[in-house]
Computed example of a mutant assay.
Amino acid sequence: MKFARVAALFTIIILGQIGCRTIVVSKWVPSDSQGFSKVRVLLSHAGEEEIFKTEGTLEVLDANDLTIKKAYELLSINPTPIKAPIRIITNGDFIEYKGTKYRGEIQLKPIDGKVMVVNIVPMEEYLFSVVPSEVPASWPKEALKAQAVCARTYVVREMISRKKQPYDVDTTTNTQVYKGKSKENTHTSQAVEDTEGLILVFKGSPIQSFFHSNSGGVTEDPINVWGSSVEYLASVKSDYDREGENYSWEDKFSPSQMNQALAGLSLGEIQDLIVATRFNSSRVNEIEVIGTKGSKKIKGTELRKLLGANKLKSTRFGIRKEQDGSFFVKGLGSGHGVGLSQWGSYGMAKDNMDYKEILAHYYKGIDFARMTQN
């Protein structure tokens, strides 16, 4: 998508490598007014009764911003009949929904017969929650800054690609983890403030700043995960991962667990699993599944989905069948392996590398750009 279609007036400033010098690269005037100032976060789909709380007053506004309902501290509403979006605002510091406190406002938006509950929150305040939801707030500050820049770039890219959709991100690992105001921490909030507006760009566009928990020593080329190559996401060594959780792991699957997980392959009782091919990163490309009704080769990524990402933590694994019929799995790393390794970032920061060095290691050929809305 070209910048002319993005929704606000911004200046992109590339951060130079010589001292504190900055170079203004370009300005653009987009064709609409959505902007990047606020993020639309899908919280859930509404039921027949939804309850919102705050410390103060709650106000319900219709599509014309006319007040249609007011409540003090607690609001109960059945949103299922609504035909147009309504907003819930507060004069307090948060709106609590299903036990979680959120900054900003809540929008109830009818789409295709369902009502979406969407948190509309200023971008930097959204990041106050995302960074500590993704990594421990006790980590070194340079690792926290690296995560803040990654998270900001990620949501900007999502906002561009989902501009015509009803929300930008959700609260899960499908996009970025977001646990609301109660998750915020002074250390991670400082990392967000220290990098305010800073994103990663490649040839003038915000990058796909994918990240994962632990690469197991080497990151993966996205073509081996999602089928398309991205120049700045080339596989790199990540030796600092050794210090992190899930660098090395093992698990076991009983025959019944394996049969149930792979039942959709229609191979009968699973007899064995044999790694057929690997990528250069040593992650499994194809694995042959042998059953009483035949055999089939499937991708390592497909096997991970079938067995569960919490059990098969990455596709960098080996597997063998034990004498008791169970399957023993041992592997390295956790996650898809593309882009920044969070535990690698942790190790690099502990070794006194700053966040720019960390990000430049995992995203090759990128520039650092600061967005300033005029």
Rank of each mutant, 00 (worst) to 15 (best):
A234F: 09
S215L: 09
V236Y: 13
K181T: 05
P222Q: 05
V177N: 08
I223M: 12
Q260A: 05
R162I: 09
E142F: 01
R157E: 14
F128K: 12
D251K: 05
E125R: 01
G197V: 01
T175E: 09
F211T: 02
V130N: 03
E250Q: 15
P136R: 14
R242Q: 07
G216R: 07
V131L: 11
A261E: 05
C150D: 09
A137Y: 06
R162A: 13
T188W: 01
W139P: 14
E220Y: 03
E124N: 12
A261Y: 08
S256G: 04
V230G: 05
S229M: 10
D241W: 13
A146E: 10
A191Y: 05
D221F: 09
V218F: 13
V135P: 09
E243Y: 09
W249E: 08
L233Y: 07
A148S: 15
F202P: 04
Q257H: 05
R242N: 04
D170T: 04
S228F: 13
W249M: 10
F211G: 04
L200V: 03
Y247Q: 05
Q257F: 03
D194S: 06
V155L: 09
S228A: 10
D194K: 02
L144R: 03
S161F: 12
S189P: 03
T172M: 04
P140H: 06
S138I: 02
S133T: 05
T195V: 03
N174R: 15
W139A: 14
I207E: 00
Q260N: 08
N224D: 14
K252S: 11
H187D: 11
E158P: 01
T153G: 11
E231H: 07
T195D: 02
T188E: 01
Y167N: 08
G216N: 06
V192S: 09
L127F: 05
W249V: 09
V192H: 02
H212M: 01
T171K: 06
K163N: 15
A146M: 12
V156S: 13
D251Q: 02
V236W: 13
K145W: 01
R157A: 13
H187M: 10
T171E: 07
S254R: 03
S161H: 11
F253W: 11
E158F: 11
P140S: 07
I223V: 14
S228Q: 12
F253K: 11
R157L: 06
I199D: 12
W249P: 10
S215R: 12
D194Q: 07
W226C: 01
S189I: 07
M123T: 04
Y167R: 08
S129R: 04
E243V: 08
D194N: 04
N174M: 13
E193W: 00
V218A: 14
L233A: 06
Q257Y: 02
R157P: 08
D221M: 05
F128A: 02
D170Q: 08
W226D: 03
K183A: 06
T219E: 02
F210W: 14
A146C: 13
R242W: 04
C150A: 15
G197S: 10
W226S: 01
S235C: 09
S229I: 02
E243W: 06
Q147C: 10
Q147S: 10
P136W: 15
P136L: 14
F211D: 02
N259C: 01
N259G: 00
E134L: 12
Q176T: 04
E193C: 00
P140A: 03
T153I: 13
F202T: 01
M159R: 03
L127E: 04
Y154T: 12
G217V: 00
I207H: 02
N246C: 10
V130D: 02
R152T: 13
V156L: 15
